[in-house]
Each structure stands twice: as C-alpha cells, then as structure tokens.
C-alpha cells in the first residue's frame, strides 16, 4: 500500500471519528429523559475502501473497518461493548484432496467437495469469540469458521472432519481465512476500529461486511455494508478477454508471440 493511501485511511477515520463524536455528544449531554424509554444501542460502521482495485502493482491491501455505537450507555455492571466484524467474499465450490503414497509416489487420492466456501472470510473481534457470546448465539448469526455453511454434510465421519479442518487450515495459510481476536479496538466508549489485510490472492467480487454488537453475551445490533474487489485497467481487460472471449485472447497471444519472434529476427539477423 502506498503511504498516501494510508494517510487517506487515517483521514477517513479521523473524519468519521469527529462525526461520531458530534453525533454522540448530545446523547451524553442530555442523558435519557426521565420516564422516556432508553433508546437501544445501534451499531454503525463503514469501510475505508469500498472499491478495491487490482492492478499490476497489486500486492495486497489493508482495509480499515470503523464504526460507532449510537446511544451508547455504560452498562450497570461495567461490562464493555463487544464488536465482531465478519468479512465474507464470494463463494465457490472447493474440492479438498489428500495425497496418498502409491508405488513410492505421492498422488492425490481421496477427496471431498465443499459447496459455497467463501473465497475470503475474516472474523475480527474485540476479544476471543467464545468470551463474547455462546456457541449457539455465534452459530445463529453464522459467525466463525465452525459456523460456516459448507453444503450438506453427507457423512459425519472422522474423515469428513479431517477434510474440513484441512480446508480451513489451508485457507488460513493462504490468508484467505483469518481469525483475528483482539483486532477490533475501542477508541473511547463508542468508537471502534480494526484493520484487516487482504492478501494478493484475494478473490474478486462482492464482499459483505457484517458488524455485530454484543454486550454481556447478548446480541444488541447488527450493521452491514458491501465492498467490491475488482480487477481494473489492463488486468480487467486481460481477465475479461481470457474468460469471455477466449478465442480472441488465444489468437492475440499467438499473434504477439509471432510478431515478437519476427521482430527479434529482423533485429538480430545476420544474413
């Protein structure tokens, strides 16, 4: 990422920070009116970069998710707010294969297919997930790797679990699945922010960002926003051509090779 971009993100955050302070300050000043119902908390959020463009110099990008809790009020027992952010990329069917040794050579043997695996899946939170809410609560909102809906579980054997774990582990190694406890930090009582790195191999498409607000293990509010990762410029042109007009693309590749070969011949020929 370029330094300018980092500055921009900082600026965006500061602006949001200022805006939220402006919005929330009156709430603190006035306090809930006697007799009136206490307005419930609402979480609001945004992303530093809603459009991520992949060009030839793309080596990954850091995005900032920030937000605020409207109508924030201290809890009677002093429990803090908890925020969980789930960033999910476009889904894809994946096959997981396990190598087996056959005649001294390792070859792909048993395999298992998982439907609708998110191409990117990051969970950021203020604390470890288990400390924020119960397993059931997390599963209900489909938060966390274990809550991913990966198509019908045709068998629940030990092997099935092994393949599932391997898939998650490989995705984590490629930084396409990220489980970031303590990645969200509060600034004051109602503002929070967190950063996540999208790696170079991040899939293109529409992403959703879900921000959940919890306190005392209770789900309070949810906010959603979208994020678009797309190839632009030359990369987009090449990709579109290769997948939508493969004949033109192939012919262009051959023509370029022939022309460059001819050019080299003219340049270096001795006869």
């Amino acid at each position: 990422m370029t330094p300018q971009r980092r500055d921009m993100q900082g600026l965006v955050f500061l602006l949001a920070f200022g805006l939220c302070l402006g919005l929330t300050a009156p709430v603190f000043a006035q306090g809930p009116k006697p007799g009136a119902a206490v307005p419930s908390e609402r979480v609001r959020s945004d992303i530093s970069t809603r459009e991520i463009e992949i060009q030839s110099n793309f080596t990954g990008i850091e995005i900032v998710i920030f937000g605020a809790v409207d109508n924030a009020a201290p809890s009677p027992d002093g429990a803090p707010y908890d925020v969980i952010v789930v960033i999910k990329g476009p889904s894809q069917d994946l096959v997981v294969r396990r190598k087996e040794r056959v005649a001294g050579i390792w070859i792909n043997g048993k395999s298992e297919t998982f439907d609708n695996v998110p191409g990117f899946y990051a969970v950021l939170s203020t604390r470890p997930l288990r400390a924020i809410a119960t397993e059931e609560e997390l599963a209900e909102h489909r938060i966390g790797f274990s809550a991913l809906d990966l198509g019908p579980d045709d068998n629940t054997s030990v092997d099935d679990d092994l393949f599932r774990q391997a898939m998650i582990r490989l995705k984590e190694e490629h930084l396409l699945f990220q489980d970031l406890d303590n990645a969200i930090g509060f600034v004051g009582q109602s503002l929070f922010r967190g950063t996540v790195d999208l790696p170079v191999n991040v899939p293109t498409g529409l992403y959703t960002t879900e921000v959940y607000l919890f306190r005392d293990g209770q789900f309070l509010s949810k906010d959603e926003s979208a994020l678009n990762v797309k190839k632009v410029g030359f990369e987009r042109g090449v990709y579109t051509l290769a997948f939508h007009h493969p004949v033109v693309y192939g012919l262009a590749a051959v023509a370029i090779a022939l022309l460059m070969g001819l050019f080299a011949w003219f340049l270096f020929r001795k006869d």
Binding site: V96, R98, K99, W106
Partner: peptide, 15 residues
C-alpha cells in the same frame, strides 16, 4: 518432488 513426503498431504482447488 514426487517422492518426498509432502509437507502438507492436503490440497484445495476449485471444482
């Protein structure tokens, strides 16, 4: 590359 035990027996690929 074919004979040595791979560091990871599992691999993933799109269907």
């Amino acid at each position: 590359g074919l004979v040595v035990t791979p560091s990871d027996l599992y691999s993933i690929a799109p269907v």
